[in-house]
Design a binder for these strands. Structure first.
Length: 427
RNA sequence: GGAGAGGUGUCUGAGCGGUUGAAAGAGCCCGCCUCGAAAGCGGGUAACCUGCCAAAAGCGGGUUCGUGGGUUCGAAUCCCACCCUCUCCGCCA
């Protein structure tokens, strides 16, 4: 959420920004009901000021034994008028709030203007694609042959777009999550949390998922609960409506969770394999920072995610998203994309964003400056570190062998207990 | 699910119809003291909306004591509903 007075004073900036992002916002309607609201507030405030003075007067005169019935009757009328005005103002407040909740964040000035993913800018690449003396197969073929994934039975259990990991496949998923958490908590300075996987409407609104993206989530019928779409929700709400001391910052936290997405509108996209699922695991990194630190922290956030891919020996690149491709709450986003041999291209495996004060304002997260000045909204950042299921895919594809087995990267072997996932006899 | 207790500022915690935005501590900031620090002393320290202002600063007005309603000239204080926390009982991985 952007600051109301900022929006009011910079309507032209907002108009340009929403065009760059490719969204439409009714700014004329905003100006109209914002103006009405301010006029009514002025009128109501004047009446309240008069009532306050009269009430004090009544108190004094009553003590002195004077008759106050005339003034009291007059103030009763005034109170009724105030109530009418307040009701209308409350309606306009709600409209204003709904409006502000639909205005996306202002992109940082460094963000390239563009329409879609084609206008994103590649920042750097690491490593090289692996070479094969055979034609590499897609992960679902490798995995089914190795007996570590059973999509047919997953469908029997829950339907399409769910996965059933089996044997060493299940262990690989678990190994990756543990490896990620261990590196972040022991080497990158993050504190680990294990939060609820179900979250409230309020928590989702604070992050910016609601009201706009209700269709993308699973709502528990008849309740105020939703299956979490990302641990970003829980981690943001860790400090909702709190004022933190500046010397606590930056605060770096992380969490492993399952994530649930309805994938409404994704019909026909990535239907083969397990790249796009209703349920997947992810380790999320999150930071609460001072405003002047947030861009430096964004760079280190990306490095923390890349570090994992490098230790796993996976070829990848970092991409800076353009205005048209960025998320609603983000001021600047880098995506990390990992190489997939079967497609001969890159697949998104992490998204790292600086939301500046956008989420903090919605969620009421402030900091108190060291100098003792007035408190202000801090900056929040989030990034995947990493999407576990997609890393699983990348390992299966990049480390597949001619005989169908899968070599386990060195760093995962302590977690796996084996150096290779073999193909079962007879397959 | 049943019974009780409670939700107040950065924190602890008073107030229980009328100069209470809110006592008192703690914390934090500034100053004095000190070679320096601690202690001590003095002062300061909420958020939001709105008006004046190009803006900032500042000043004026308003709102805010879990949330939403109600009573009243006037509510942190009284009434109702809801939410949350704690204790006890029941149930349960």
């Amino acid at each position: 959420m952007l600051d109301l007075s900022f929006v009011r004073d910079h309507v032209d900036v907002i108009r340009k920004m929403t065009e760059d992002r490719g969204v439409s916002i009714d700014l004329d309607a905003f100006q109209s009901f914002d103006g009405e609201r301010r006029r009514l507030i002025t009128e109501a405030d004047e009446l309240k000021a008069r009532r306050n003075r009269a009430s004090e007067d009544i108190g004094r005169r009553k003590k002195a034994g004077e008759d106050i019935s005339g003034l009291a009757a007059e103030m009763k009328q005034t109170s009724q008028r105030i109530k009418q005005l307040d009701e209308r103002i409350a309606e306009l407040d709600e409209r204003l709030r709904q409006f502000l909740l639909t205005v996306p964040n202002l992109p940082h000035t460094s963000v390239p203007v563009g329409h879609d993913a084609r206008d994103n800018i590649e920042i750097r690449r690491w490593g090289n694609p692996p070479t094969f003396d055979f034609t590499p197969r897609p992960h679902w073929e490798v995995a089914e042959k190795a007996g570590i994934l059973d999509l047919a039975r997953a469908t029997r259990i829950a339907g399409s777009r769910f996965a059933l990991y089996c044997g060493l496949g299940a262990r690989l998923e678990r190994a990756l999550a543990n490896f990620f958490l261990d590196v972040h908590t022991r080497e990158h300075g993050y504190t680990e949390f294990l939060p609820p996987f179900i979250v409230s409407t309020d928590s989702l609104t604070a992050v910016g998922q609601l009201p706009k993206f209700a269709e993308d989530m699973f709502h528990l019928e008849g309740t105020d609960w939703w299956m979490t779409p990302t641990a970003e929700v829980e981690l943001t709400n860790l400090h909702r409506d709190e004022t933190l001391d500046a010397d606590q910052l930056p605060l770096r936290v992380c969490a492993w969770t399952s994530c649930f997405r309805s994938e409404a509108g994704a019909a026909g996209k990535d239907t083969r394999g397990i790249v796009r699922q209703h349920q997947f695991q992810k380790v999320e990194m999150y930071k609460f920072t001072l405003p002047d630190q947030s861009y430096a922290e964004l760079e280190s956030l990306v490095r923390d995610a890349e570090d994992l891919l490098q230790r796993l020996g996976l070829h990848h690149r970092v991409v800076e998203l353009c205005t048209g491709d960025m998320g609603f709450a983000s001021a600047k986003t880098y995506d990390i994309e990992v190489w997939l041999p079967s497609t001969g291209g890159f697949m998104e495996i992490s998204s790292c964003s600086n939301c500046e004060s956008f989420q903090a304002r919605r969620a009421g997260i402030r900091y108190r400056p060291k100098s003792g000045g007035r408190s202000d909204y801090l900056h929040t950042l989030n990034g995947s570190g990493l999407a576990v299921g997609r890393t699983w895919v990348a390992i299966v594809e990049n480390y597949q062998q001619a005989d169908g087995s899968i070599v386990i990267p060195e760093v995962l072997r302590p977690y796996m207990g084996v150096a290779r996932i073999p193909v079962p006899v007879g397959k």
